[in-house]
């Protein structure tokens, strides 16, 4: 019995330690970022521009850049992914092989490294956008958002198809028995019953889009000015952290990175909690 107790303690220690990592990340960043609050920089941080020459270290431009890129990526990626998932659903009945192929491709897409997307983006998409916009570097919000849309779509597609698959078979068979076409099944049964799953997938994808570093870092141009249009270069919170040059705890510049980290952490927690609440309520409603 003593051995049993030791094993259980070890397993519990592993679970506790793993759970504490996410707390630790938060606590450490909050601890190191706290002096910003003490110095009364909090307001400046979220409203002012990033002008180190003038002693201004606001992360407002990065917050705007992050929101622009993530929202646009979702705007492009969501219809594409929903359409793709719908196509998988539509083709399950007759062209099963094609439907399976589509799903397989989506699965493989989750494995494509972001850095590879970024690499191809620089040499293929950026010059294309540059020509299309007729000037500039081509490294802008639009390029990043387009690329990011492709990056986050497999997550959405798989999430959508999974929630489509949870629609009870009896419902589908009922429509079949009434002579319903696949499109009718999708429109009147599958989609209405998967709204919650689609919502969860959207929130999750937004979280992923905001958390992505490489795409924005490589193709958005990283300008620190507040972007005015989609053809402007912009810097995201993640890219801002990645471009860290100082490692001086006393400098305001370094401290603001913790604020970036905390904003990202906060957004992440929010998306996870939202998905958790949505998902749990969905389960509770199901008998």
């Amino acid at each position: 019995m003593r051995a049993e107790w030791i094993i259980e303690s070890l397993l519990r220690a592993a679970a506790l330690a793993s759970a504490s990592v996410s707390v630790l990340i938060f606590a450490f960043m909050a601890y190191l970022g706290y002096p910003l609050v003490e110095k009364g920089q909090l307001g400046n941080l979220f409203t002012r521009p990033w002008l180190p020459d003038q002693g201004l270290y606001g992360i407002y431009p990065m917050i705007v850049g992050t929101l622009w890129i993530a929202s646009l990526a979702l705007l492009f990626g969501f219809p594409l992914s929903l359409g793709y998932a719908a196509l998988i659903q539509l083709t399950t009945d007759r062209k099963n092989a094609f439907s399976r192929f589509l799903r397989k491709v989506a699965e493989i897409m989750t494995g494509i490294p972001t850095v590879v997307y970024g690499f191809v983006g620089i040499f293929l998409l950026v010059p294309f956008i540059r020509r299309w916009l007729g000037g500039g570097s081509g490294m802008c919000i639009l390029s990043a958002a387009l690329l990011l849309a492709v990056v986050i779509s497999p997550t959405m597609i798989l999430f959508f198809t999974d929630s489509f698959a949870r629609v009870p078979r009896e419902h589908l068979r009922a429509v079949d028995a009434l002579g319903g076409r696949p499109a009718q099944k999708l429109l009147y049964v599958v989609l209405p019953r998967s709204l919650r799953g689609i919502g969860c997938g959207l929130v999750l994808a937004f979280g992923r889009a905001m958390g992505d570093t490489l795409i924005a870092l490589m193709v958005a141009g990283n300008a620190v000015a507040v972007p005015g249009s989609v053809s402007d270069s912009a810097r995201t919170l993640t890219a801002h952290i990645a471009l860290v040059t100082a490692a001086d705890f006393d400098s305001l510049e370094f401290r603001t990175l913790f604020a970036c980290g905390l904003v990202l952490y906060f957004m992440t927690t929010l998306t996870v909690t939202t998905v958790g609440v949505l998902g749990r309520r969905g389960e509770a409603r199901r008998p």
């Binding site: 759970a19 990592v21 905001m210 993640t238 952290i241 990202l264 998306t271």
Partner: peptide, 18 residues
């Protein structure tokens, strides 16, 4: 489970920065 979900969704740059 909630803590693990948060960790899973934490942007990798934040973990790297940590």
């Amino acid at each position: 489970g909630h803590f693990y979900d948060i960790l899973a969704a934490t942007p990798s740059i934040v973990i790297g920065f940590f």
